[in-house]
Computed example of a mutant assay.
Amino acid sequence: MALAQVVQMAEEFSKERTLLLKLVQEEGAKITDVARELGKSRSTISLYINGKYPESEELREAARNYLTRIGMWEDEQEDDAGKAAAASYITSADELPFIETNDVKRMRYVLKKAATKQKFGIVAGDPGLGKTETLKKYMLTNPGSAIYVRCKSTHTVKSLLQELADALGLTDIGSANQLTRRIVKQLKRTPFFLIFDEADLLKSAEKYEALRDIYDEAGNIGVALVGNLALAEMFLDFADMRPELKRLADRAPFHQRLQGPSREEVEQLLENVNLTPGARKLIIQIALNPRKGGLRNCVEILDVLLDMTQGKTITEEMVLHIGQINLNANA
């Protein structure tokens, strides 16, 4: 089923059309029998329940009468109660709660210790565990105390220093040595906690050495390196084999490997999302599996589905199709 069809199911299906679809697909009723009861042709009802035939009050009334006869149509009182219940569900991913997971607590511990003790801190974990979101929260709750730099695979030593200089409000012209001196002078005058997100993308030892030089020469700052598990491999697992990395690792007494959310934490995130049991199970599986994108992919899928459904029920089929589209888009 294409994305447009899934959107149509969520936004355009009337209650009558939805119940007829359920009757055929889930209850095993034959379209021929349903069509006879409604006084319509088999092809008309087939197109109707699949969203390819326009709604009409005549068809909806016939469907309501039929559904009432077989006990599938709720009375108005029950329907209003259902709408009231639906109103309590969230309608946007912006309303999803920020869960204080154990990983968030681990990250906050490293950031706090590295900042206050003026040491290096290292946080490493699979993609999609909320590292960047936690950093954003840290920046908001510690305004004016930290400088955030997002690392790129294209960074050279000089371009990394230029980005740091820009973040500090300094001119970014000159050689790498000139930039380093300018940055160190500014940090001695106004110390900041330096946070480098996606630091695993730097890869080469000379870039990490450039950061260590700034740390050593400033003498009054903390530094946090946050990235994927490759960061832990470099500085926690194999640093002893590479002296140029060990010099930085020795300055990093605070480090954590993130474990990913627990099932209970994901269920807490989904508490006010209107999901069928099957859809909830699928979303939890996605969030717990880093190979399927983990928590990040889970939230991205919910973002699309909540925009589509606006608090109405999200089905297993919707999760499957939007999840597949999301994985393909990020492949």
Rank of each mutant, 00 (worst) to 15 (best):
A4I: 14
A4V: 11
Q5H: 10
Q5N: 14
V6A: 08
V7R: 12
V7A: 08
Q8L: 12
E11L: 09
E11F: 01
E12C: 11
E12N: 15
E12Y: 11
F13S: 07
S14G: 07
S14D: 05
T18V: 04
T18D: 10
L19D: 08
L19W: 03
L20N: 00
L20A: 00
L21C: 09
K22H: 09
L23G: 03
L23K: 06
L23E: 09
V24C: 08
V24Y: 08
Q25L: 14
A29F: 14
A29G: 04
D33K: 09
D33F: 10
A35Y: 05
R36C: 01
E37K: 10
L38A: 04
L38V: 05
G39W: 10
G39N: 07
G39A: 07
K40I: 05
S43T: 14
T44N: 08
T44M: 11
T44P: 03
I45H: 01
S46L: 08
S46F: 09
N50T: 04
G51P: 02
K52M: 13
K52G: 02
K52D: 12
Y53D: 00
Y53I: 01
P54T: 00
P54F: 01
P54L: 02
E55L: 04
E55M: 01
E55N: 09
E55A: 03
S56Y: 00
S56V: 03
E57P: 03
E57V: 12
E58V: 05
E58C: 03
R60T: 02
A63N: 03
A63R: 01
R64L: 02
N65E: 15
N65P: 00
L67W: 01
L67V: 00
T68H: 04
R69M: 09
G71D: 11
M72L: 15
M72R: 11
M72S: 08
W73R: 03
W73H: 04
E74I: 05
D75E: 12
E76C: 02
Q77K: 13
Q77N: 12
Q77W: 12
E78L: 10
D80A: 14
D80F: 13
A81M: 13
A81K: 15
A85L: 13
A85E: 15
A85N: 11
A86P: 02
S88W: 02
S88Y: 03
S88L: 13
Y89P: 04
Y89F: 15
I90K: 14
I90P: 05
S92G: 03
S92A: 11
S92I: 06
A93E: 13
D94L: 13
D94V: 07
D94Q: 14
D94E: 15
E95A: 15
I99Y: 11
I99E: 10
E100Y: 11
E100P: 07
T101E: 05
T101W: 01
T101Q: 07
D103R: 05
V104Q: 12
V104H: 13
V104W: 11
K105N: 07
K105H: 08
R106M: 13
M107I: 13
M107Y: 08
Y109L: 13
Y109T: 04
Y109I: 00
V110R: 06
K112N: 14
K113H: 08
K113I: 02
A114Y: 05
A114I: 06
A115V: 00
A115F: 02
T116Y: 11
K117R: 14
Q118K: 15
F120M: 12
I122L: 13
I122W: 05
I122F: 05
V123P: 03
V123N: 01
V123G: 02
V123E: 02
A124C: 09
A124G: 11
G125D: 09
